[in-house]
Design a binder for these strands. Structure first.
Lengths: 343, 343
DNA sequence: CATGCCTTTCAAAGCGCTTTGATTCGAACA
DNA sequence: TGTTCGAATCAAAGCGCTTTGAAAGGCATG
């Protein structure tokens, strides 16, 4: 059933029917009621392609996510992020267009999104330092909100981020207060903006106490379980091993935990662990008692808030760039304890 | 830049330009070359909405995934599945439309996908037994391929599935061969078709050896780390605890492992674990040495194959339902060993 | 040179909607 | 009774593309 058919059934013009369905005022309540009734009866819903061709709006938000060769991992937080955004999208009648692209095709993808007119705006995932995509999107004139920030970019843009620096500074301070002096940092790729900020917070806390920063117990790599596991074995085999480890993802934290236990050591006694926790639904940090002491900020909530910001921007409800900085909360779990007395 | 503009620059009709760009034969090589050059120079790409309005095709595949209230978890394998499908989609010039819906809105969503004309076909995720969506999609005439199968549905439809029954039968046999007689099963929700089949395989192997099936050491719930953890504590506290546990997901397997170790027991000696492994990129089953003995089938590969099947179907390259049954491979890791001699 | 037949190109219609600018109708007023 | 005005409705144009059916051009044939 299309508009034409519907209007013929009703014996009215397409104009009137269209107006009635879209809530315009220049149609009497009586006819509107009738039109709505008949539309429902015939299960009519407008062809979204035709509608967007006519209006120029698509009611679609683009999400571009990266996938490397088959060895590289897919962003594990995307699922929860999009679940949070999904609620907003359906409430506001937006659809999601998902593009899975290799890094080399990324720019091309954003350009195509614009010129092909598939989306009204995009969410920029995983910003890197000096991320060139920001300039690109500004040049294209495609509305966007960054999930994170991009150090080094001076122009104004919209973003939603967690205070990563503060979170890792706090976590490090917490460990120092427990007496730890040798603290490892297992971070994401340094090129990622969040990793950069986290390292910065970590270093700030160490420096404030005059503790030396030692690259030997720091890592910057994909935050998988296996990497956490391998790195833990490495640093614990050093002549001067860390007594605490700070990890950037609960996924790698599980690997750390596993390695510690495989070495016959006890988590929270021999080795303390603090992790950043995105609140992933399938990998919760315990149910009643937290497994790890963690700095936590829900990525699902981030998806929720960010999508609202983006839609407000697209609709023109706000003008100019907006930003929102969330604070992570530190929850103390079983994975931390006083630094062991050195033998 | 649009078609009209481009054709004016070229001094040709829109017809000719359109044909040249779409590779139709009724245009001379000379003009085609020229048109392609000018199109590239002006960075032209066709408006996808207009194109699909004109052709009736959308070059878009729909994926509908469920999200409950904010407590329920988002399907953790979706990311890897879509990464596998993504390669095919971009190679074939298809886009992805993602819908995040609550279970109650699911039927409405599929109907809307059809009547609003947003997609050419859909992937049906997470089929349940007697899944009503299959009948719905058939009624709507929307091409689809099921990722899994739906026991109880007798009509013909396209699907790609892993031989879940066989996989769990094999795994159970493997444990029995090691001397285990008391084997727990931590499965997904029983309503899910895959869980049903896995239980069936498990029971078949037990029955073949005359081992009694005991619901006390069986679970049917969300396959999260915490559920695996809690369930393990429960069954190991029983007067007659299992010596081996079979889990349906590597995520819950990690929880099982954690619980075993927290009780001071050793995995592979005191308690054996076999898990089903989807080959998730962020939660690999070890790198060199597998952590768990596992029946493995890559969900990424499934995404790859399934999307090819669906596109072939949409294009009309094949007629009638097609299906593909993948076998999971059993890899032996460190998590299994002979059943401990009872005290 | 006229005829016929490809090959190449074009004008125009159509996809399903929105929106502009016109038209109709009835009520209100002088 | 004629005029004015606002409310309700409509016909038609337009969004950017594809595709049908027609036309033009080139070339061999009789």
């Amino acid at each position: 059933m299309n508009l034409k058919g519907l209007s013929q059934i009703l014996g009215m013009s397409q104009t009137t029917v269209s107006r009635a369905l879209n809530g315009y005022p220049e149609v009497s309540e009586k006819t509107r009621k009738k039109i709505l009734a008949v539309a429902a009866e015939h299960n009519y819903s407008p062809n979204v392609r035709a509608k967007s061709l006519a209006t120029g709006r698509t009611n679609t938000i683009g999400h571009v996510i990266l996938t490397g060769d088959h060895h590289q991992m897919i962003n594990p937080i995307f699922g929860d992020f999009i679940a949070g955004a999904g609620d907003v999208y359906s409430a506001e009648n937006y659809e999601i267009s998902l593009s899975i692209v290799k890094e080399a095709d990324e720019e091309k993808t954003y350009r195509a999104l614009k010129t092909r007119g598939t989306v009204d705006g995009v969410v920029l995932h995983g910003p890197k330092m000096n991320d060139s995509r920001i300039g690109l999107l500004q040049e294209l004139g495609l509305p966007f909100v960054v999930h994170g920030r991009a150090s080094g970019i001076t122009s104004d843009y919209s973003w939603l981020d967690v205070n990563n620096t503060r979170a890792f500074q706090r976590a490090t301070e917490f460990l120092i207060d427990l007496g730890h002096r040798r603290i490892g940092l297992f971070n994401g790729f340094e090129a990622m903006d969040f990793a950069h900020r986290r390292r910065h917070g970590y270093e700030k806390a160490l420096q404030a106490q005059g503790i030396q920063i030692d690259p030997v117990i720091m890592r910057s790599e994909e935050m998988s379980d296996s990497n956490g596991y391998a790195a833990t074995h490495e640093v614990l085999s050093l002549p001067n091993p860390p007594t605490a480890i700070l990890t950037s993802s609960i996924i790698s934290a599980f690997g750390v935990r596993r390695a510690v236990q495989d070495r016959g050591l006890e988590v929270g006694r021999d080795v303390s662990i603090i992790t950043y926790d995105d609140g992933l639904s399938y990998l919760a940090n315990g149910v009643d008692v937290p497994i790890f002491t963690a700095t936590r900020s829900s990525v699902r909530e981030a998806g929720h808030l960010l999508s609202q910001m983006l839609i407000a921007q697209i609709k023109g409800d706000v003008t100019g760039p907006q930003s929102k900085l969330l604070e992570a909360e530190l929850t103390v779990g079983q994975s931390t304890g006083p630094a062991p007395v050195s033998a």
